[in-house]
């Protein structure tokens, strides 16, 4: 799932699709934590709590990224990353 997310992030040209791929990566991490917690360390809840916080952080990240993408859409009228090449070395 994490690898799917990385693949999507690298290949997608639409910024929303890139964001979805990023969500996929974050969710993969969350599942990883929950599974490790459930099967390796069933006595404690550290992984579960980490997951709860990670979900909240991911939600904040998405909200901010969407806001910035909407700004780009207003300026550019599309959200293709290939257009974001005004600054290059």
């Amino acid at each position: 799932m994490f690898a799917c997310g990385v693949y999507g992030f690298i290949t997608r040209k639409n910024m929303i699709a890139m964001l979805v791929s990023l969500e996929l990566m974050l969710n993969a991490v969350d599942i990883n934590f929950v599974v490790f917690n459930r099967y390796l360390f069933p006595g404690a809840f550290e992984g579960m709590f980490f997951t709860l916080f990670a979900i909240a952080i991911a939600a904040a990240e998405t909200a901010l990224a969407i806001a910035i993408i909407i700004n780009i859409f207003r300026a550019e009228k599309n959200i293709d990353v290939r257009n974001l090449d005004k600054m290059k070395f």
């Binding site: 964001l19 934590f33 990224a65 910035i68 780009i72 005004k86």
Partner: peptide, 22 residues
């Protein structure tokens, strides 16, 4: 443009960081 580049790389890197943590 700078903001979108920053936020996407920042989220990408923190995802990798948290994968390492897991």
């Amino acid at each position: 443009e700078a903001a979108v580049k920053y936020i996407l790389t920042a989220v990408f890197s923190s995802a990798i960081f948290m994968l390492g943590l897991s």
